[in-house]
Computed example of a mutant assay.
Amino acid sequence: MSACAPAKLAEGRVRSALVDAGLSNANAACMADRMTDRLSIGQLQKLQALQGPKRGLSDYVATVRRIGDAELLGVTTTAAALCAMGFAPEKR
């Protein structure tokens, strides 16, 4: 097993959590790939707890902001922006 295997195993769970939080499948897949490489398991678990009604990326980022974790917010914001604009390699 490679050193990044745990992050890749977590990617599916993160993707599901993002969809459960109301993001589209395409944005969730793109963001999960970026986020699992950059966040700790504890930070990913915080995201997994964010479930709610269908909402857009800006509403999701506002919800993440309320967690109060600057690194988590930065990674989420960057992933959301890059994926939404199509600049993330994962979205191409």
Rank of each mutant, 00 (worst) to 15 (best):
N25A: 13
G12R: 11
A10C: 10
V19E: 09
G86I: 13
R15P: 01
A3L: 12
G42M: 12
C4H: 11
Q45H: 10
D20N: 15
M31V: 00
P53A: 09
L18Y: 05
A62S: 05
T63D: 11
T36S: 13
L72Y: 03
R66L: 11
V64Q: 01
A17Q: 01
E71R: 14
L72V: 11
G68F: 03
M31P: 00
P89L: 10
L23R: 07
A29R: 10
V14Y: 00
K46V: 08
T63Q: 10
M31A: 05
Q48P: 05
L23I: 02
A28H: 04
F87E: 11
L50R: 08
D37Q: 15
A10I: 05
E90I: 01
L50W: 03
T63H: 03
K54A: 10
G86Q: 06
R55W: 00
C83H: 01
R92H: 12
S24M: 00
F87N: 07
G56L: 00
L39A: 03
G12K: 10
R66W: 04
G52T: 05
A70Q: 12
R13D: 15
M1R: 08
R13S: 15
M31F: 05
A49K: 14
F87S: 07
A17R: 01
E90A: 14
L57S: 05
N25I: 08
L47A: 04
A7F: 08
A79H: 02
C30T: 06
